[in-house]
């Protein structure tokens, strides 16, 4: 016997990643749990050309926010700024609070519903990181929408059925 016995053990098709839940993208066009961080891009409320790059690192809970040109966010005054709060709220909408908490390695506790509430449970500290990696991931993300549609058959997608009807 192995320690992997269970219902999923010999199934080829099962939803390991629940589909992202729909949310409005205008304020926070990009959120992801990747590179060991909750990270994303928040549109500036005042300047349509400007975006903020915000992130929280899993485990250490170090956070940072800056413009995509690495200019530090003026809203960081010993606590997460409103961009980080928006990022966390939208992440919870997109992934659910449990998945975000698990990734960041924080105990969500009973009754935590929003990203702001989750942020308040972190023993967070500010630590500058470069915006370049996250911003380039955002640009790559956008570039998917520039790829042309295709008639190439992808037999591998039989492992990935669309799911979640009527959600």
């Amino acid at each position: 016997m192995t320690d992997t016995d269970g219902a999923a053990r010999r199934r080829s098709v099962l939803a390991v990643v629940p589909p992202a839940r729909p949310r409005k993208l205008a304020k926070v066009p990009f959120v992801e749990l990747a590179d060991g961080r909750l990270q994303g891009v928040v549109s500036s409320g005042s300047d349509i050309e400007r975006v903020y790059v915000s992130s929280v690192t899993a485990g250490s809970h170090a956070y940072h926010c800056s413009t995509n040109n690495n200019r530090p966010c003026g809203g960081l005054r010993g606590a997460p700024c409103k961009h980080l709060e928006s990022l966390a709220d939208e992440a919870v909408l997109q992934y659910g609070v449990d998945r975000v908490a698990r990734y960041l390695r924080v105990d969500a506790g009973e009754g935590t519903q929003t990203g702001v509430e989750l942020l308040s449970r972190l023993d967070a500290r500010h630590e500058p990181t470069s915006a370049a990696v996250v911003f380039s991931r955002f640009l790559r993300h956008l570039a998917y929408l520039e790829l042309p549609a295709s008639t190439t058959v992808l037999p591998e997608l039989h492992w990935f059925p669309s799911t979640g009807a009527g959600r």
Binding site: A20, P22, L142, Y144, A149, S150, L157, S162
Partner: peptide, 25 residues
Amino acid sequence: VRVTVGAAKVATIGGPAVWRLLSAY
């Protein structure tokens, strides 16, 4: 027979919106 068409997308595009990515057909 089968006819297959597809498109690249991002995680935040799902549900009925995916059909719009196939407007080339």
